[in-house]
Structure formats: C-alpha cells, structure tokens
C-alpha cells in the first residue's frame, strides 16, 4: 500500500516537475548542438542561495547559471532553431550570427513575475541563465539594448 501511495504521489508530482525543466532542456540542447560541456562552478549552490534569498540583484530571484567552455562547434543552420521553448514562452530579443554568436531572451509570465531564460552561444563558449524578475525590470533590461 505504501509503495502504491508513493507511486501515485510521484505520478501526481511529475507534471509539476516537468514544468520547470526548461533550463535543463536548454542546457542539454546547447551541449548536444555544440559539443560543449558545462563547467562546474565551485560553491555555486551557495552563491545561488545567497543571491536569491538575500541579495536579489535588480529584484531577480530564482536564478541559475550554466557556463560552457571549449565548444567543438558554433551554432549553424537556421536562426533561432537551436532554442525551442514551448508553451507560453515568448522570444523578446534574439540575435543570430551564423557560426559566430547567438543571443536569445525568452520570457514567460507567472503572475506578477516574469520568468526569463537568457542564452548566449559564441564560437568557443556559451552561457545560459534563468531568473525571475518583475516586468518593469524586464522592460528596463530590453530598453537598454542599443545598436
């Protein structure tokens, strides 16, 4: 009976766990497309906790970061196909230079907050970040984009 209950609880929790897989999916996608490996950042768990719980830079919370080095290849092919987020994710900014650099900022509204996924892939290195911030900060972030 206990096993059955545990199994049912796990099954019930699976959809919730799947909702937050976007960051890991992006990490895996970049690894697969570029042949790069995620760099381990010492004490990253602690830094994340302090940053999210105490500092909240520009009001951001729930952030995570993945850094890749020594990419075997840059991104090629059709622009923006490399990062596909379904559901309610919307691309706010995307920049693509084939084989050189790709930048993408996606947002998803969650109540009063916007969840942000930001990814930059260059020839030899890549960075993926996720965080949640208030919409005015998202707008401020985008408004500072200059050409």
């Amino acid at each position: 009976m206990r096993t059955l209950t545990f199994g049912l609880l796990l099954m019930a929790a699976t959809p919730l766990m799947a909702v937050d897989r976007y960051f890991e999916d992006a990490v895996e996608e970049i690894e697969a497309r570029t042949g790069g490996r995620r760099v381990k950042i010492p004490m990253w768990g602690l830094v994340r906790w302090v940053g999210s719980a105490a500092m909240r830079p520009v009001g951001a919370k729930d952030f995570d970061l993945a850094v890749f080095e020594d990419l075997e290849r840059g991104l090629v092919g059709r622009p923006f196909e490399w990062l596909k987020l379904g559901g309610d994710w919307k691309p706010v900014v995307r920049v693509h230079s084939p084989g050189r650099e790709s930048v993408a900022i996606y947002v998803r509204q969650e109540g009063d907050w916007y969840r942000v996924l930001m990814a930059t892939v260059e020839r030899r290195e890549a960075v993926v970040m996720k965080f949640a911030m208030k919409p005015e900060w998202v707008l401020t972030l985008v408004s500072t984009l200059r050409r």
Binding site: K90, R94, V95, S97, Q109, L139
Partner: peptide, 21 residues
C-alpha cells in the same frame, strides 16, 4: 550575417510600463 529580433507585446509593455519608476 546577423539577424536581430525584438518583440514586445502589449502585456509586457502595459504591466512593465506601469511599474517603471
């Protein structure tokens, strides 16, 4: 050689704009 896209929808503009200082 480079493509740039910016898409800001009404929701982000309205909600975000209202809270800008």
């Amino acid at each position: 050689k480079e493509t740039v896209e910016v898409n800001l929808d009404q929701n982000l503009l309205r909600v975000g704009g209202a809270f800008l200082s």
